Simulated assay, not measured.
Amino acid sequence: MGYEWLALAAAFLWAVASLLSVVPAQHLGTFAYSRWRMGCTSIILGSMALYTGGWSSVEQSGVAAMMLSGVIGIFIGDTALFACLNRMGPRQAGLLFSCHAVFSAILGYFLFSETMTHIEFIGALLVFSGVLTAIFFGRKGQAANQLESIKGNVWAGITLGLLAALCQALGGIIAKPVMQTDIDPVAASAIRMMTAFAAHCLLFISGVKLARATLPMNIKIFAITAVNGFLAMAVGMTLILYALKQGNVGMVALLSSTTPIMLLPILWIYSGKRPNRFAWIGAMMAVAGTGILVV
């Protein structure tokens, strides 16, 4: 399977997982949900790498980079994403997260002296315009839809979503050189996940109030969290790392940023409410803009 299909498959899994995250994220709270999810995924990935012998491919020289990628891309990025999801719902959080392709291009400009043409600037403008269009106009006619309601300050939600996108871009750039070696993607993903989980555990042990669960864990919430972690992180993120072994960061970022468009029909089926035309237009503008940036 080519890296294009791997990235698209990851985008689809992220779309499904974002919808599955709504109930447990609201039940447990942002930090507790992220901690439980990362704990489940760490066990799954670690076991997979042990079964396949992937741990033998890990070289000490690449461990530090993968750990840093895990702290930035997963511990900070994923936690910010779920905080955004709790405030803005899966569609709008997914749109903001799709900006990681833009940030990948911008970081490439500053870190690797890559130039940005006028066409690429138009692409970046399209992405942000599409995101803003979908967020501020995409909720028209959706007043009764709880998945579209914004809780708290809208700009706080936007900031969290953009932080998640920036961290995802940074995590991918940090991981890329290591992924071009012979390291097993499952083992690499396990290192990132275990590091993020350890960071969450340290935060919880420190007694920070935000790290406590809003409501106690139960069997139903645990099952949803475990399935979500398996789909999005154990499978989805590992597919992205496989894709990074074959393709460039920008193209992988583009293909994986199609999640907002994939999420629209899923939300339509789930809620029975058709997203309005601004939601579709904004999502397509965002993906078209990322296409201009990285193709």
Rank of each mutant, 00 (worst) to 15 (best):
S257G: 10
G250H: 11
I261A: 15
A243Q: 08
L267K: 04
P265Y: 09
A234K: 02
L241I: 12
I269R: 14
T258H: 00
L263H: 03
S257W: 03
T259C: 12
S256K: 08
L264H: 06
G236K: 04
I269T: 13
K245F: 07
T259F: 03
L241V: 12
A243F: 11
I240R: 07
A232R: 04
A253H: 03
Y242Q: 11
L263T: 14
S256F: 10
L264C: 05
L254K: 02
K245L: 01
L254H: 09
V252S: 04
T258A: 13
L255V: 09
T258F: 15
I266D: 05
T259K: 11
V235W: 07
L267E: 13
A253L: 02
S256G: 12
T258R: 01
M262L: 15
P265T: 10
A253Y: 03
I266R: 05
I261H: 07
G236N: 10
N248H: 11
V252L: 05
V235E: 07
I266K: 07
I261W: 09
L241G: 06
A243D: 00
P265V: 12
M233Q: 15
M251G: 09
G247R: 03
L263I: 10
W268Y: 14
N248S: 15
P260A: 05
N248P: 14
L263R: 00
I240W: 06
L254Y: 13
L239G: 02
V252H: 05
G236W: 10
L255C: 06
G250T: 08
A253K: 04
A253Q: 09
P260F: 13
M237Q: 14
V252G: 05
A234V: 02
M233Y: 12
I266T: 12
L244I: 05
S257V: 10
V252A: 03
M262R: 03
V235A: 07
A232W: 03
K245H: 13
M233L: 15
S256V: 14
M262I: 15
L255Y: 10
L263S: 06
W268S: 01
L255G: 07
W268R: 11
M262G: 00
N248L: 13
A243W: 07
I240T: 07
L254V: 15
I240P: 05
A253F: 00
S256T: 14
S257Q: 10
A243I: 10
G250D: 08
I261T: 08
M251R: 09
K245I: 06
L254S: 01
N248K: 09
A234R: 01
G250K: 12
L241R: 01
L241K: 00
M251I: 14
M237S: 09
A253C: 00
